[in-house]
């Protein structure tokens, strides 16, 4: 048995596949690829296949870590090629290696975020206001979670989870390069953009793409 980490790029229409569905999708893809998955022992054996970091519906990623355990001695290059032959549109395996580092080392994630506004002026105004809002550090969002079986609404102090945020504009688009907390209780970047748009009073089309994961000392996680 070998523990392998696959890095999965997810883009285009595939961004609308949920985290749960990604699991199902890959269980099948691995079968189609002819990889012999390692099955857990016990009454109801199931393959070991684990996406380390949930990605919200509608967001793209350059690389999501997926750990699987396999039984055969296929090389990393073989796994990569075989998987890419059988994946649906918009999903690609970009890297394969032994799963060595612990997922707990993930502390931050870097995102590229685009917010498309009606005019270039609106984009510029947005940038200024957004910088000021983040400086003031008061941005909050409501997040519904579960406590036992009860639904509870929690206040998330967004700014505490923003490590860095750099704004610029490109025409009518606001481009945001943000490093957000990804360990512990991660910050969904959509909460940040929603809170900003709400505070500023815009309704732009938001596009979010996760670029990479970082460790506590800002090294790339792999």
């Amino acid at each position: 048995m070998r523990a392998v980490r696959l890095w999965i790029k997810k883009e285009g229409r595939a961004k609308y596949i949920s985290h749960l569905d990604m699991n199902r999708c890959f269980t099948r893809a691995v079968r189609r690829a002819g990889l012999a998955l390692w099955y857990t022992e016990g009454f109801n054996p199931h393959p070991y296949l684990n996406f380390l970091t949930p990605l919200s519906l509608g967001q793209e990623s350059d690389g999501e870590p997926l750990d699987i355990r396999i039984e055969d001695d296929m090389t990393d290059a073989q796994i990569l090629r075989r998987m890419n032959d059988v994946l649906p549109e918009g999903i690609t395996v970009v890297r394969v290696h032994d799963a060595v580092t612990k997922p707990a080392q993930i502390a931050f994630a870097r995102y590229s975020i685009g917010i498309e506004l009606p005019t270039a002026a609106a984009a510029q105004a947005f940038c200024e206001k957004a910088r000021a809002l983040l400086l003031r550090g008061e941005l909050t969002a409501e997040k519904t979670g579960k406590q036992g079986k009860r639904k509870v609404v929690k206040q998330v102090r967004i700014c505490d989870k923003v490590q860095s945020a750099a704004f610029r504009t490109e025409g009518q688009c606001v481009l945001l390069d943000a490093v957000l907390q990804a360990g512990g209780e991660p910050l969904n970047p959509a909460l940040l953009t929603d809170a900003l748009q709400k505070a500023i009073g815009t309704d732009g089309l938001v596009r979010i793409r996760r670029r990479e994961f970082l460790t506590a000392d800002m090294q790339s996680f792999s």
């Binding site: 229409r13 893809a29 649906p88």
Partner: peptide
């Protein structure tokens, strides 16, 4: 397949995967 308007409405609905296509073996 995805244009701006579609992206916008897909962001606003439940289970957008119903409306995107692009599944394996689709022609």
């Amino acid at each position: 397949m995805l244009d701006k308007t579609k992206e916008r409405i897909l962001n606003a609905v439940q289970k957008p995967g119903r409306y995107t296509g692009g599944e394996l073996n689709s022609v």
